[in-house]
Design a binder for these strands. Structure first.
Lengths: 222, 222
DNA sequence: GTGCGATTGTGAACAGAGGCACAAGCTTCT
DNA sequence: AGAAGCTTGTGCCTCTGTTCACAATCGCAC
């Protein structure tokens, strides 16, 4: 089975980029072949789970040997649709937005940031890295010009939904939302939400505590 | 059942802060009471799931009426251990680290940033917001002084594991890792990992594509 | 006080993800 | 060529998480 994924489970999809990152590191170290157990160790997951994840995109391992690093890298990239560069825009250039715009990790991984947008007069026109912040009113033309399909939203919470609607109207089909609010998108648009403060609050629960009526609660998060 | 959670499922714990954020918004708008269906709508989840999540921390709703916003807010905060402030340190003040240090969202939610660390000579001594970047060598004393228990790691990938080990040795029990690498922590230390580029790669999979042998793949992410 | 409409809390069915364990298959050594 | 030793791919079982559907319970009106 698992000919050519009719469907890769969401949980597997979320781990594929992780494997990819590990493979790239192995490649940089000149490793040509890797076993599932070794790769699983690097990724911090169970070896059987890793093999099952990889099996969803076909049989690219060799029994008795392992996986060819370069080959597997390419197969994961293909499955994820990372064969070609995917231009990204950033909307909202406060502290976080500026950091994201300057962050090299996106361009390195096939997501070059091609345009920045804001509405604040003191931010529009500002140079950040190689780019100059454009006004959000000019969104549609610029998105079309660069054929950008992905938007990073790092606006204040109260603007996020309107901005999301606008970028989708301009042709964006993937949205990564950093604004601390839930945004809604229609069919055919992919969405992921990241809230930094939320992560700390989740961690808080797993802090060893003895204050409350609870005894001890030490557990590892995932 | 669900007297006082012997154990709240991890999936529920991860959603509680989300509900909290929605409740705070309702509170700011002067709403006193909310039904599970309304709150679920705001949080973008199923109403039954929300009720089950809340049931893990006791029965704080009123049948026929709903939940008292203020009361529920407090109960979730208590369950998550957010009753008191939890000081946070940031290690690694590159672009992302600086943005996180200046980001107001942490302090507002009970996680005041009390110290910043780096090792680069041109960064140590720099003023960021109200704080001056300390040298990582001074970690132990400063962590002890502020009784900090949470660390945000935003160093380069190759330094992340060593830094993690060091902050844990200094008394940190919760780690939020932004470095693009998997770090290991021992028993009794809570860990969450956030990789921004990884999020874009996951989104990439759900982009409508027709290039490959795959037909159409439009699905909503969660 | 009784009845009615609304909403919670939860049992039970269902779906998805995780992990063990082993057969299948490759490579190497003799 | 045959045997031995790995490692993959996967069937099967378990466990966690999700969703439905409904009884229990509340406030309110009359």
């Amino acid at each position: 089975m698992a000919e050519d994924g009719l469907q890769v489970p969401a949980a597997s999809v979320a781990r594929l980029p992780l494997y990819l990152r590990c493979l790239e590191e192995l490649c940089a170290n000149g490793v040509a072949t890797v076993s599932s157990s070794r790769l699983a160790e690097l990724a911090g997951v169970n070896a059987a789970k890793l093999r099952k994840d990889l099996s969803h995109l076909g049989s690219y391992g060799t029994r008795g040997v392992g996986y060819e690093v370069i080959n597997l890298t390419h197969e994961i990239q293909r499955e994820l649709g990372l064969d070609e560069q995917s231009p990204v825009i950033v909307v909202g250039l406060g502290n976080l937005g500026q950091a994201l715009a300057k962050h090299g990790g996106f361009g390195d991984r096939g997501f070059p940031i091609v345009a920045l947008f804001d509405v604040q007069p003191d931010i529009v026109g500002m140079q950040i890295g190689d780019l100059v912040v454009a006004h959000f009113d000019d969104l549609a033309g610029i998105v079309a010009h660069y054929k950008a399909r992905t938007a990073i939203i790092s606006t204040p919470a109260d603007a996020a939904q309107q901005v999301t609607d606008d970028v989708i109207a301009a042709g964006i089909t993937s949205v990564l939302n950093f604004a601390p609010t839930v945004v809604q998108v229609g069919e055919g648009v992919a969405l992921r939400q990241v809230d930094l403060a939320l992560e700390l609050q989740i961690l808080s629960y797993y802090q060893p505590r003895s204050d409350s009526e609870r005894d001890t609660k030490l557990r590892l998060s995932v």
